[in-house]
Design a protein around this nucleic acid. Structure first.
Lengths: 191, 191
DNA sequence: CCCACTTGCCTAAAGCTATTAGGCAAGGGC
DNA sequence: GCCCTTGCCTAATAGCTTTAGGCAAGTGGG
């Protein structure tokens, strides 16, 4: 018989595509096996478990997203950088909803520490260089930005403000604008 | 044999408790049946499906949370109200993590429209009375507050900033403080 | 070149969840 | 006290997960 040529990497990648199509929580070892036209048990030579598979997809998505965000931010500063940063996350969530969810999969601390999650944190901190905040304000600000952006994307995906005026794009722009304003204010009040 | 006295309401309530103990996505028809010491199939006389059960739990949690938030906000205004509002959400998420997740369960539009979700929106708008924002800024602000608070709570629950200084309480307070500042600024710039 | 060995995918099987169909008895209405 | 609605049961199907053990496709050494 012809071999399918499975590897953990291909499974993660295919799992990411599957997640975009049917939703991350619908990603199942069985569904992935079907996609490769292979029996379910065969996947267990490459991934330890369903949880392991999801972890790999999460790591894949985290890395891909970190690349995009850091690309988007490169060469920009201040509000320009903030906007690019925010938009990169939101665009990724729109283009790859399943992968975005995957990137939020809860990893155990050790795995998280070795993941691209740390690059995300670094990029966020880099953004703040343009706002000249002292500690601990910088940390607070990183957390606030993460919360606001992730929260917005998550509510938007859940259909939160889908069918009411004004459109989600305007509110997003307003929020990014407001946060920029806020951070500039915080910098001023913390000389 | 002795009857267990199941009703959709008791199932929703027990499901909410179960969610707090094992996580909302671990709430299963089987687990709930075990908890009532009853056969699995018996629950299907009271709920249509697993999805129906989760919907009921979500509605229960949404209503309970709406009560708490509106209680917390009652008789307060301005930053005082904003803080109470934010803290009510976060406290609920800490005390009842499973229910908080349940409250974020995606409902179909019709169900959502008939849910306590609308009370949440009303309370959020009421908070903003103290900041005197004109439309569409008020809507933008509601969305931003929802995003920031939900995002923070969600990241905090995911262990996002658990083991690093400063503690999550300080960042939370800083964020609420900042948002208050921001909204007051927005009111000023939109006469 | 081919033999042995590693490795990949398979069959088989057990356990758990969801869901439907049909049965029997408990308890309320008369 | 009888009936009949309603509640919980048994039985059965189907899907996903995971483990154990087998056979054949490649691969490296002689």
């Amino acid at each position: 018989m012809v071999r399918a040529g499975l590897t953990p990497e291909r499974l993660a990648r295919a799992g990411a595509e599957l997640a975009d199509e049917v939703g991350f929580d619908q990603v199942t070892v069985s569904a992935l096996a079907r996609r490769f036209d292979v029996k379910v048990a065969s996947l267990y030579s490459h991934v330890k478990s369903s949880h392991d598979l999801k972890t790999r997809i999460a790591l894949y998505a985290l890395a891909e997203l970190a690349d995009r965000v850091s690309d988007a931010v490169a060469g920009r500063a201040g509000k320009d950088a903030l906007t690019a940063f925010a938009d990169a996350y939101r665009r990724y969530a729109h283009e790859h909803p399943g992968r975005y969810d995957a990137a939020r999969f809860r990893l155990d601390p050790a795995t998280a520490a070795a993941s691209a999650g740390v690059r995300h944190a670094q990029t966020a901190r880099a953004i703040l260089r343009g706002y000249d905040l002292a500690e601990p304000d910088a940390t607070h600000a990183v957390r606030m930005l993460g919360s606001a952006f992730h929260g917005y994307i998550s509510l938007e995906a859940a259909g939160g403000f889908a069918h009411s005026a004004p459109g989600p794009q305007e509110s997003w722009a307003w929020m990014v604008d407001s946060l920029d304003l806020l951070l500039r204010g915080r910098a001023a009040t913390t000389p």
